[in-house]
Design a protein around this nucleic acid. Sequence first.
DNA 1: CTCATTGCAAATGGTTTGCATTGGG
DNA 2: CCCAATGCAAACCATTTGCAATGAG
Lengths: 149, 149
Amino acid sequence: MRQQINIEPKGLHIDPIAILEDSGHRPTSQRCTLARLLQTRHEGFTAEEVCKALPEIGRATIYRTIKLFLSAGVLCKLALPDGAPKYALSRPDHHHHTVCVKCGTISEFRDGTVERVLRALGSEIPGQIVSHRMELYLICQACLDGTKN
Amino acid sequence: MRQQINIEPKGLHIDPIAILEDSGHRPTSQRCTLARLLQTRHEGFTAEEVCKALPEIGRATIYRTIKLFLSAGVLCKLALPDGAPKYALSRPDHHHHTVCVKCGTISEFRDGTVERVLRALGSEIPGQIVSHRMELYLICQACLDGTKN
DNA sequence: CTCATTGCAAATGGTTTGCATTGGG
DNA sequence: CCCAATGCAAACCATTTGCAATGAG
């Protein structure tokens, strides 16, 4: 558990709107509303969940804004075991995600060992590695403890 | 916490139809045709590609058969960087995949170090790890060499 | 005034489903 | 015969797009 990030370190905090403005986009009310929601949702969310949570914003806008945040690096896109897309706030440092297959909660971890291994693999595998995807699926402690539902 | 590692005493070759019959399904001509195709396609394929390659078989049957093979463990499902699903023949030993982002070719690799790291992570992360997903995206040697298109 | 942004509704693309038909055991 | 398996087309569902309306600078 030592490397698991459960609290939000102030220094790592991301301001989605500031980043948006930096890349030449307007901080519209819809985008701000969405950004505010993102920051409360450490457990991640699907596009559909956002649509339900913010019915006053059009579907198209929500999808467009998620894309915008993705390309700005504010969000990262990850995949459930069945491949369904889910989104979570990005941290500035590189990390990977764990997804609870029972309650869906997303956490993140970073481990230098993983990074080292990935780098080492780069020299063993022909071709030029451009990126990777890695997600751990687990049953989280809360679900194991039965402290949820 | 436990990684699922198949230790298969037999060779590396899988017989999709035999496995199918073992699980109580019929070796129909469509399924055999599909299975034959799979075994020539080490670079993986999308459902749509199979439909094009086998126009004489109905879409529904192809999708149903892929699902069948997935649940029988004959195929594994992996994801392109954008999350689009792609399928590849399963090997009995545990492995991971590389996907060329240029030509789409899928290869596999197996690295004890990766497995060790994953196991080690299991003890550091709260909760019970049930599975994981890991794909390396790269530009394959052939594409780097310009020997393709 | 202009142009980025939005909302709606229609279009899309991949996958699934209902149902009548087929065919192997 | 029987029932699993198939094919077709319609349904489905998440996501995208066309376009006219809006609104911030």
